[in-house]
Simulated scan of single mutants.
Amino acid sequence: MFQDSITLKNRHLQFIKTISKSEIVYGLRGKNGFATSNSTQYEDEDGKPIGMICFWSEKRRVKSCATDEWKNYKVTEIPLPEFIENWCIGMANDGLLIGTQFDRNLFGYETEPLVLILDLITELKSLGKNLNFRKFNGIEDLEKHVKKIVE
């Protein structure tokens, strides 16, 4: 079944809005780590698909994906500041991608972690929110740090 790229993008934009409001991100955690997949859009310099960790904004959507190879995985909540600081930045450093809002057929949106952070910052600012981070002094400091890396 072909998933329309506009549908995937819209689900991703909804992911950003939802987690910015709830300040919770969901993942599927197994005994060997979180649910992963390989990119269908991005390759490394050897032509191999880049690895990706999948995240969701709603518990019901995550549960629908806990089948087949992920059937023994448990839904795990991650606070948004921790997701941004530890997951997104760590995954960027490791050269991994983030998959958002995957469905039962494992179709979802693929994005680079630092791009996701900048998108989240834009949404959080529009909501008038500022998060408490351990390594950064608020959203402005985080934004300055990420933009320096991206440029």
Score class of each variant (00 low, 15 high):
R11N: 05
G30V: 02
I149H: 12
A35D: 07
K63M: 09
T18V: 12
L114S: 02
I19W: 09
E110G: 13
P113Y: 09
T100Y: 04
T100R: 06
M91I: 00
S126K: 12
K71H: 03
P81A: 08
K74R: 13
L97R: 12
I78A: 06
S5T: 12
W56I: 12
T40I: 14
N72V: 03
A35S: 13
E43K: 13
C65P: 05
G95E: 01
R29E: 06
F15A: 10
N93T: 13
T100D: 06
N72P: 01
E151H: 08
D68N: 14
E82C: 06
M91P: 00
A92T: 02
I78T: 13
Y26F: 10
E69G: 08
I50G: 01
T40W: 10
S39P: 08
K125G: 09
V25N: 12
G128S: 15
K48V: 01
F2A: 15
T100G: 14
C54G: 02
C88N: 13
G108C: 07
G51T: 08
M91C: 07
K31F: 11
G33C: 09
A92N: 11
E85M: 04
I84R: 04
D46H: 13
Y26H: 01
K148D: 02
G30L: 03
D44Y: 10
I117T: 04
I98F: 04
S39F: 05
C65G: 04
K9M: 07
K9C: 01
K135R: 11
C88A: 14
G90P: 11
T111P: 10
W70G: 00
K48N: 13
E43S: 14
P113K: 03
I117N: 02
K74F: 10
T18Q: 14
P81V: 00
T67C: 02
E82P: 00
V25F: 05
F102M: 07
L124F: 09
D68M: 07
V146S: 00
L114H: 08
M1G: 15
F83W: 03
I98M: 01
W56E: 09
S20E: 14
L97V: 08
E143V: 02
I19H: 07
L124D: 01
F2P: 10
F136P: 06
V146F: 00
R61I: 15
T67M: 06
V75E: 05
I19P: 06
N105R: 13
